[in-house]
Design a protein around this nucleic acid. Structure first.
Length: 285
DNA sequence: CTAGCTCCGAAGTACTGAGC
DNA sequence: GCTCAGTACTTCGGAGCTAG
């Protein structure tokens, strides 16, 4: 279990600075996090802008030679990796385990609804191990390990379940602008693993209905059981090479969040819905 | 090492239909 | 008609692979 420290720290600092006017409601969200919690971070996805725009160097005084030894290539130092998540907080030691180490994702939205989640399903917890699976590489865990230093050497570091938070701004261009920090658990009303196979089941049922095909309850049960194995989004989302096909179908996972219009508490959310779309890559000869 | 290519997530843009 | 939200589609660009 982790505490809420990371999110509350950020929240308190953001609120204080909004009051003082050192940041304002229309500043880029990443500026909030980098300027107010930079030193507490173990991963920044856009290290290029962190350094060039906000003058923050994630690597602090770590020497380039040492980083190279730990597998951090020079091109990685200040790039925009476009991986999940946007930010990772450093872990702190507590008794035998860890606290802190939260994930922070940013969502900026013109309207009152929260923008869609491209490729990542929002959840309450994620470990570095899961982050690596989502990304299909170990870039994030590699960087976090370096910045968490000694604390990262423990074997449990990789599997430590980290809380997920979302720094969300709605109505960003109007006077109604509102900034909130939302706990990932608000989005995870159905376990992520169920979301995928239930989507496929839904697709199947809709087809059966449309084509007026009747299959037995028994068969449907078996299909459901088989489909329940479909849980790995990297397998779902990769483009597929099919025999004789000149195009490669690519299923993309997106989650659209439907906001509940609550004037006081602004982050009560309805069932997340996974919408997949198909696009095609040309298969080179 | 590096230039050129593929892969694919995320951001940005376009479209569409409902309500006024 | 116009606006806006929801949805669909397109573009961008970093990483990683490979051939030279």
């Amino acid at each position: 279990m982790t505490s809420l420290t990371d999110a509350t720290t950020l929240f308190v600092r953001v609120v204080n600075n909004l009051k003082k006017g050192t940041i304002n409601f229309h500043s880029p969200l990443e500026e909030f996090v980098i300027r107010k919690c930079g030193e507490d971070l173990a991963y920044i996805d856009n290290r290029k802008d962190a350094k060039n725009i906000y003058g923050f160097d994630l690597w602090g005084n770590l020497s380039i030679d040492r980083l190279k030894k730990q597998g951090i290539k020079k091109t990685l130092l200040y790039s925009q990796s476009q991986q999940f998540p946007d930010f990772l907080f450093k872990v702190k030691k507590q008794a035998e385990g860890y606290i802190g180490g939260s994930l922070m994702e940013l969502k900026d939205s013109k309207g009152g609804n929260i923008a869609s989640f491209n490729s990542t399903i929002p959840t309450e917890y994620k470990s570095l191990e899961e982050i690596d699976i989502i990304n299909g590489n170990n870039l994030v865990s590699k960087i976090a390990r370096v910045l968490d230093g000694k604390l990262a050497q423990n074997e449990s570091y990789f599997k430590f379940e980290r809380r997920c938070f979302y720094l969300i701004r709605t109505h960003k261009e109007s006077k109604k602008v509102k900034v909130s920090i939302v706990d990932g658990s608000f989005f995870e009303t159905v376990p992520k693993e169920h979301l995928f196979y239930q989507t496929f089941l839904y697709i199947l049922r809709a087809h059966l209905e449309k084509k007026k095909i009747k299959i037995s309850q028994q068969t449907l049960k078996e299909v459901e059981k088989a489909l329940s194995c479909v849980t790995d989004q990297t397998i779902i989302a990769s483009s597929k090479i099919l025999e004789k096909a000149s195009v490669r179908p690519r299923l993309r996972i997106m989650a659209e969040v439907h906001p509940e219009g609550n004037p006081i508490v602004n982050f009560i959310l309805r069932l997340p819905k996974v919408a997949s779309t198909l696009s095609f890559n040309h298969h080179p000869k």
